[in-house]
Design a binder for these strands. Structure first.
Lengths: 216, 216
DNA sequence: GCGGGCGAAGTGTGATCTTACTTGTGCTGG
DNA sequence: CCAGCACAAGTAAGATCACACTTCGCCCGC
């Protein structure tokens, strides 16, 4: 239950600013409002949702400052995760990551933002799971939950040509058990994502103001 | 409500391994079990508590790996926070931090571990609040919630002479608006805390095993 | 004396109900 | 025609209830 709501955010299936009542969500999940309340509460406490009193829950709008902070966190957490995964990654996980990367490319070629979000998540977290660090894994999950909604909007508004693909570099570094190389490629991958947002003009909002994704 | 339970953990008022039922906690807080459930669920999802089915909630035992990860996270998050606070810290907050530091020293002199935990928390988070970064502030809070129980046990078992005080260096650096100096002093402060635990012999547990604080 | 099984007590979990509050709407008076 | 107010609909939040499950203790049988 809790995982379902989190997955919706990570996959970008809820837009920034979207508001929904607990009862509506409960109806979609086929349960009562209480489990939804609890799941939403957890996501509120990590900043991925916010309660609006007597209205429901809302996906927070993104500000430039928050996005930069979250990106810095992503770099820290995820470079650490791939560094550790370099020596622990089973062959089957590496091959699963190759398949996930192929799915990513297919989604880009098809211009399917939703499929891209899902495949990209599977690619990264399949690797991170091998790092055997609950602390950093949970942190990465938390950050993705917060950035999912905005990334979804960004990808949906972009041409398929804008992507510079760092995934092969990550895979090659992991295959030769090179932690530093994998970390560097991961950093490049994350920052190219931020660069994508910047080039799309989403970072021109005044300080503290919510980014206007409707302009996309 | 949610803050109350978190505060208990940060202040170290619940020992690692301690088990408590939701109904019992509800009685202590004077509410029904439901708000406690929700608060506990949030803390479970960030790793500060764990549900034991049909038994209640438990404060997780600490492993060496998890403690090292959490310490690395603390260094990252809190050096970032003080760097930003260096240019934003109001005079009154700096003076409040000086008072909090005096309370820390008084608690050490008195050998009062509980007072030390509270004053130390007030010192650090009074500074962090000025950094105006909800992302990193929440992260620091989350880490402290997870380390609170073990730190409490450690401090309660130590002589008052073992403390090397980095707080004045932090305050001086902030007073002259020196982000790098404040960050370095904060890093030293955090790592001296870890060193304290190591010297107390708590890090000799085999890999993956829960640290045995009863040996203190 | 000891071991196995049965029952009672206690637990989290989910549903339902009540309450207080916000908000949007439609009516009324100017 | 417009502004302001009152009412109604919808909401989250807390308490209470019902249920399935685990666990511990006691008792009976061997």
């Amino acid at each position: 239950m809790h995982g379902l709501l989190r997955a919706r955010l990570i996959r970008g299936e809820m837009r920034p600013g979207a508001m929904v009542s607990l009862r509506t969500l409960a109806g979609e999940f086929g349960t009562s409002a209480m489990p939804v309340r609890e799941a939403a509460g957890r996501l509120v406490s990590e900043g991925a949702l916010e309660f609006v009193r007597n209205r429901g829950i809302r996906v927070p709008r993104m500000t430039r400052e928050r996005l930069l902070d979250l990106t810095a966190l992503r770099v820290f957490a995820e470079t650490e995760l791939v560094k550790r995964a370099a020596f622990l990654l089973p062959d089957e996980a590496l091959q699963a990551a190759r398949r996930a990367d192929a799915a990513v490319n297919a989604a880009i070629a098809a211009g399917d933002a939703g499929a891209y979000m899902r495949a990209n998540h599977a690619f990264h977290f399949g690797l991170y799971a091998a790092a055997a660090s609950p602390v950093f894994f949970r942190l990465a999950e938390s950050v993705w939950t917060q950035t999912g909604p905005v990334m979804s909007v960004v990808h949906a508004s972009l041409s398929r040509l804008d992507y510079s693909d760092h995934h092969p570099r990550i895979l090659e570094a992991l295959a030769r058990q090179d932690p530093a190389g994998a970390a560097e490629a991961t950093r490049a991958d994350i920052e190219s994502g931020l660069d994508l947002i910047a080039r799309a003009g989403f970072l021109t909002a005044p300080a503290g103001a919510a980014i206007d994704f409707a302009a996309a």
